[in-house]
Design a protein around this nucleic acid. Sequence first.
DNA 1: GCAACCTTGACATAGACGTGGTAAGGTTTG
DNA 2: CAAACCTTACCACGTCTATGTCAAGGTTGC
Lengths: 118, 118
Amino acid sequence: MAGLTINEAAETTGWSPRMLRYVESAGLIEPPRSPAGYRLYGPEELQRLRTLRLLLEDHGIGLGDVGFALRLRRDTELRDAVEAWFEAEVTRPADIPDSAWLRWEQEKHQRLLAALVD
Amino acid sequence: MAGLTINEAAETTGWSPRMLRYVESAGLIEPPRSPAGYRLYGPEELQRLRTLRLLLEDHGIGLGDVGFALRLRRDTELRDAVEAWFEAEVTRPADIPDSAWLRWEQEKHQRLLAALVD
DNA sequence: GCAACCTTGACATAGACGTGGTAAGGTTTG
DNA sequence: CAAACCTTACCACGTCTATGTCAAGGTTGC
């Protein structure tokens, strides 16, 4: 076969077979399959499995974090939205001073209640 | 006071007071404090709380995810490491064909065992 | 000064994450 | 064909996340 099977790959990478399937389910490393459906880990997959291990250990992050990073780099809209949130500053008419704006905020639910009994 | 207190902020943003403290503990939104230590939410914090809420709902992500994104943008080393992992391709002498490399991998633990009884 | 707020810290819980097992069934190989 | 693999689909369990609630004590405003 043109690659290591899951148990062999587990031995050379330090992951358990169970975790190799889990890593795959997270979309991080998806080895090609044999005609019968066996996972076949080639040099590239093995290499990435080892470096993934180091990445997690070195920075104290989890598979879910890397999965999210993957989502960030694949889903442009998500990336932009997150980026926008970090960058966002207050956007509101410059002619309303903070004090007035705060009062408005503070009285909002009173206005809402008033509207209800109206 | 120059801002909304935590319960007022909760009312206008849709978060619970408990969650506002939690969001703060995640490093996402840290309102300034009054001399006595009261959290004071200004226009900027309120705005960001509302958009944070939308960000999570719109994309089905969690606070932890946004926290990780924050880490990514603050910790350059982490960002580079994650980036490098996604980009990594196999790096190994081009003159070793896959088949040989795989055999080498496959027999690694047998060699290790042999070394042990040596 | 008292009622109504705020603070931190602790306990509680439902669901998700990380990980290991096991069972039922198909594949490979000597 | 039998042993030793592989597959998916579950069950289990400790830990973490997200959230609520409560207690003990300080602050504020009328």
